[in-house]
């Protein structure tokens, strides 16, 4: 598990994380890793990696968006962004492709950290353009951050599946980088709570973007919610999941692109600025209370395998 954390995936830095005196610098881990990969090596020299990405993008954009109707008024939209993420993973895993290996994955990860900035800049420009709209929608934007507390509702299911204290780490938040840092900071690196959040982090890394893209696509067909509500909800606090969630939302409401980008970007920014405090001061205490109350009632025999303890 130690190497797992050191190898942690694409990374957002942290905004104003209060750290204990002795435990400090958790928030620097990601930046350090990126700096080592980008600043001290020459990541651009791996031209085959970038040519591969160009090839993937070319294929994806040529195929374009595919819409599969599955019922009346319900359709699944598969966008180029899904092709590139899946093809990227396939290229890494496929044995015959020798030029995309662990080393290239590390470079891709480091480069990605920088490219998040471009994504954020684009969203920020849309936000600046629509700043009046954002002020008008202020209450909704801020209150929807509290909606993320809904993850705690998953705690009983985690207990029924046999998780113990891991469930506190698993269900207090969406389990991305800032949340991992908060949980590790609070419970310690080798605690069951940290194991739980690591598990969510790894699985979220691998299936999160793809899953949320389909979730959003289906929700857009099924749920009669306000377009702005969909836009705000896509700011879940993860760059790639935010990106994957905006795609179908933009496609579903043509003509509203700028406002949707503005809300999605601003809501993601809020998730980073105040979302972290909601996790520290509300979500974690609430999850613990619920755990202490429910665990004696519905807790099962522990099922956590030994290999996860490593």
């Amino acid at each position: 598990m130690l190497t797992l954390y050191a190898d942690s995936n694409y990374v957002w830095g942290l905004i104003f994380i209060p750290t204990g005196d002795d435990e400090g610098h958790v928030e620097h881990i990601y930046r350090e890793k990126t700096d080592r990969r980008i600043l001290r090596k020459n990541p651009w020299r791996d031209y085959r990696l970038h040519l591969t990405v160009l090839g993937l993008v070319f294929i994806a954009e040529m195929i374009g968006t595919i819409t599969i109707p599955i019922a009346k008024n319900v359709a699944i939209t598969i966008m180029p962004l899904i092709y590139t993420i899946i093809l990227g993973l396939v290229f890494y895993l496929a044995k015959p492709i020798k030029w995309i290996q662990r080393k290239q994955a590390r470079i891709a990860e480091g480069a990605m950290m920088l490219f998040i900035g471009v994504l954020i800049a684009k969203l920020a420009v849309s936000s600046g353009q629509s700043i009046n709209l954002i002020f008008d929608m202020g209450p909704a934007l801020i209150l929807q951050e509290l909606g993320h507390l809904a993850t705690i509702l998953v705690l009983p299911i985690a207990l029924l599946l046999g998780f113990k204290k891991e469930s506190i780490g698993m269900t207090n938040s969406i389990g991305r980088e800032p949340n991992v840092a908060v949980v590790v900071d609070k419970y310690g690196f080798n605690s069951p709570q940290s194991r739980g959040v690591f598990a969510i982090f790894i699985i979220g890394t691998v299936i999160g973007t793809i899953f949320i893209s389909f979730l959003v696509t289906l929700s857009l067909s099924f749920l009669p919610l306000h377009p702005y509500a969909f836009a705000m909800a896509s700011g879940v606090g993860s760059a790639s999941m935010n990106a994957a969630a905006i795609g179908p939302t933009l496609a579903a409401f043509p003509g509203l692109e700028t406002s949707i980008e503005a809300f999605a970007g601003f809501s993601n920014l809020l998730s980073f600025c105040i979302g972290i405090y909601i996790v520290i001061f509300i979500a974690i205490p609430l999850t613990e209370k619920l755990y202490n109350w429910l665990e004696p009632k519905i807790g099962r025999d522990p099922i956590v395998q030994k290999k996860e303890d490593e």
Partner: peptide
């Protein structure tokens, strides 16, 4: 961006 994410993950 997600092409790099895919390779990185």
């Amino acid at each position: 961006f997600l092409a790099y994410v895919g390779i990185g993950m």
